[in-house]
Each structure stands twice: as C-alpha cells, then as structure tokens.
C-alpha cells in the first residue's frame, strides 16, 4: 500500500486512489491508426522515474500528477493535474 501525498488532502493510502498509468499525451484524433494503437495498447513499462496519473476518487476527486520511481516506489512529487510542472 503506497502512501501518496495528496496536495489537497495530505498523506493518504493508495487504495483511496485509482491508478491511471503513465501520462502520455493523447494523439490528435486524425493521427494514423498505428499511432493510436500505440497510444492505446503499448505501455513503455520502463524503470526509474515516471510521471503518472492518479485519481483521488475516495478523497478530493482531483486528478493528480505523481512522480514515482518504478524501481523503489519512491514518490517525489505530487501535484494537481492542472498545476504547471
């Protein structure tokens, strides 16, 4: 159970959140099918630091940007999705 520092609610268990994966910009609607299918189905599944999206569904209901280390699960930055990084 991760501990996530919600900028609105404070330290909360990760079971209050839903995990939405790595943040990848949505391609243009007219982009070619290969681009779209890569976006939809291919995850980079890397290591090291990743910026990902979490939804604090059982809390403030805000979508958050979370920087998490995929090797250690360390979390170093959590901000509202709309806040400039």
């Amino acid at each position: 159970m991760l501990l996530i520092q919600c900028p609105h609610c404070g330290d909360r268990n990760s079971d209050e959140f839903t995990f939405n994966g790595e943040i990848v910009p949505r391609p243009d609607a007219d982009a070619d099918p290969a681009t779209w299918r890569r976006y939809l189905y291919m995850k980079s599944n890397g290591d090291g630091w990743q910026t990902e999206r979490w939804f604090h569904v059982s809390g403030c209901r805000r979508f958050l940007r979370v920087e998490r280390n995929l090797d250690t699960n360390e979390i170093r930055d959590v901000r509202d999705y709309g806040d400039p990084s």
Binding site: T18, R26, R53, F55, F63, G82
Partner: peptide, 13 residues
C-alpha cells in the same frame, strides 16, 4: 461520473 471528471480536469479544464 469519474469519466466526465477525467475529461473536465485533464482534457478540457
């Protein structure tokens, strides 16, 4: 509800 929030917060704030 979550889906609409998603688009409103991350897509079209």
């Amino acid at each position: 509800w979550n889906w609409l929030d998603d688009w409103l917060q991350t897509g079209f704030p």
